[in-house]
Amino acid sequence: MVLEYEILEKRVLASRIKEIRIYAPLIAKSAKAGQFVIIIPDKYGERIPLTLVDWSRSEGWIKLVFLETGVSTIKLGLKRVGDRVYHVVGPLGNPSKIDYYGKVLLIGGGVANAALYPIARELKRKGNYIVAAIGARSSSVLIYEDELRSICDEVYVSTDDGSKGFKGYVSQLVDELLRKNSRYDIAWIIGPAPMMRECSKVTKKYGIKAYASLNSLMVCGMGMCGACRVRVGGSVKFTCIDGPEFEAHEVEWDELINRLNMYREDERKALQILLSRIRR
């Protein structure tokens, strides 16, 4: 018998990037594009948010993709097929505003390219023409290109080192694309906060409305604690229950980035302890 929160499948997508399928039938039943879950890897673990990448209502699983950057994601990455995750709760956050817009630009960076996938799929279902611009440090860590190509009408790739596609940041790629043709009805931006800040500037420059999916630090994920608060359009919002998607041009990006770094020292310390334990 499959137990709740059991890992059904695990794939290594690139160095330090993993994809897992978890048995969570209630979450799969209600999941919508743009939502996330909170996951606790083991009983000592933190509650961390991860975007839902895919799910199956009939088979009862959800799919998550993550980059191993700290204690929680490394612990999660060490889990094997058949292991159970301590706790998963969701789906959380408001779903993406899926509608027919016309021509849509999806902008992704790094591990978050996977998070574009369900949004692309639902937007396609509504009949939108979809262009995706996805970036990565290098071609070896570029993920979800094939999955996005299977849905999107056009896909453009950038790598920081030029090993594939456009050489440079995805924000520069988007600038190039929009300089040639800026007739888009809406855009989505998902990636690391500094990348989203730059892409937000570019879409603003060309007058394209954009949603950004924020990756604030969270504890509860359900409006109880306020750890994830951000300033949007001058007022304080909770990423967990007011977001996670907000109008990108209204987000106070520097404040978000500052808050993301709040525990950097603690995280480094905890990571060192974990790594020394793993090596032993």
Binding site: E46, S72, V219, A227, R229, A270
Partner: peptide, 28 residues
């Protein structure tokens, strides 16, 4: 929204529910 300003709920949840008083044995 400056760093190290908590709501009491966040502060207490970190400590009581997530056992942050035992960091780094507990991860929060």
């Amino acid at each position: 929204n400056l760093n190290d300003i908590y709501s009491a709920n966040e502060f207490l949840t970190r400590v009581n529910l997530m056992k942050a008083y035992m960091f780094p044995t507990y991860d929060t």
